[in-house]
Amino acid sequence: MTLEIQNVSKKYNKNQYGVKDFSISIEKGILGLLGPNGAGKSTLLKMIATVNKPTKGCIILNKNNIIKDANYMRKQLGFLPQDFGVYPNLNAYEFLEYIAAMKGVGGNNLKSRISKLLEGLNLIDAAKKPIGSYSGGMKQRVGIAQALLNNPKIVIFDEPTVGLDPEERVRFRNLISDLANDCIVILSSHIVSDIDTIADKVAIMKKGTLLSYGTQENILQHVTNKVFETTIDKENLTAFKADKIIVSASRKNNQLLVRYITNTPIENSIKKTANLEDAYLYLTKTK
């Protein structure tokens, strides 16, 4: 299975693009889509999900142009949008049965499928309570469940971990890691830790354009031998970051322990192993 996004743009007016000339080829596995708020991630995902049409370009799934044949994509798609809504008076079972009917999903295995999803997302105990009584994280987990109801071949999650606590994030990552053996999973986030532990490939966006795409090893090459750590006086921080990218700064006695990115490290700096957050900050700050 291959999803080809070919020179796709979404133009809102004469000078404003949501996505501009975006091209990428996606195969089975997990693609982590990273970018700051306003980077165009949601706009891109809505075009892939056939919610919106691009201004120009093509989106091809297994040689089928889904802009011309949206149903071909929709039959194979599970989608959790960023602005997912629920019916507060329904319980989780009722809501998922309703969504299944809307998607044309049925059969003798539907109830067991719903129960399995609810169990996997730690919602069984609350499954018969009205969704309106759920916390934000629980509602988000119901959204994840509805995206997986139809055993999709392409799953799109737009900021899926919003509202989830650390334990729920781990549970979610384990769930989609199992999915990725059989389908394409696109996971969008501005939180690097949601991506770095599970993504087979990473795409980094800014202002609607693609900055970098590849394996995490490919992405890290942008900051090879550029990440350092040192201690500085607190009053020197402003001057220090004038020509350097600060990744983190933490108190150490009366000084700051600073992790930073540069081509010209200061004296007494220690070279550090680069990680995905380093590369993400470097690309979004310099490109």
Rank of each mutant, 00 (worst) to 15 (best):
I154R: 01
K207M: 00
I176K: 05
F157L: 09
L211V: 06
V170L: 15
I219T: 04
Q146I: 04
T230A: 13
S193V: 13
V202E: 01
K206M: 00
T230H: 00
G208C: 03
L179I: 11
I154D: 00
N150A: 13
C183K: 14
V202N: 01
L149M: 09
N218A: 13
K153F: 00
V227W: 06
K226I: 11
V155E: 12
K153E: 14
T231A: 02
G208Y: 05
T197M: 11
A145S: 11
E217F: 01
N181K: 14
D178I: 11
S177V: 06
K206I: 04
L164K: 10
E167I: 12
D182N: 15
D158P: 11
F172W: 08
A180Q: 13
V227C: 15
L220W: 04
L175I: 08
L187S: 05
A199I: 04
F240D: 09
H190G: 08
I176W: 09
P152D: 09
G214D: 07
F157M: 05
R169S: 03
A242M: 11
A145K: 06
H222R: 12
A239S: 15
L220M: 04
D243F: 07
D200Q: 12
K226N: 07
E235Y: 13
D233N: 14
Q216S: 00
K234F: 12
V155M: 12
C183L: 01
I154A: 06
F172L: 13
L211C: 03
E167L: 11
L210P: 02
G214I: 01
I219A: 03
L211Y: 02
A147P: 04
V155R: 07
G214N: 04
G208Q: 05
P152G: 10
N150R: 08
S188G: 12
E235V: 14
C183T: 11
E167S: 09
K153R: 10
N151G: 04
A203Q: 11
H222T: 14
K206Y: 08
I154T: 10
L220Q: 05
L237C: 08
T197P: 00
A203E: 02
T238C: 02
N174Y: 08
L211R: 02
I195G: 04
V192H: 03
L149S: 14
S193R: 11
Q146C: 09
E168C: 05
E159W: 12
V192D: 05
N151V: 01
S193I: 09
T231Q: 14
G208A: 10
L210T: 02
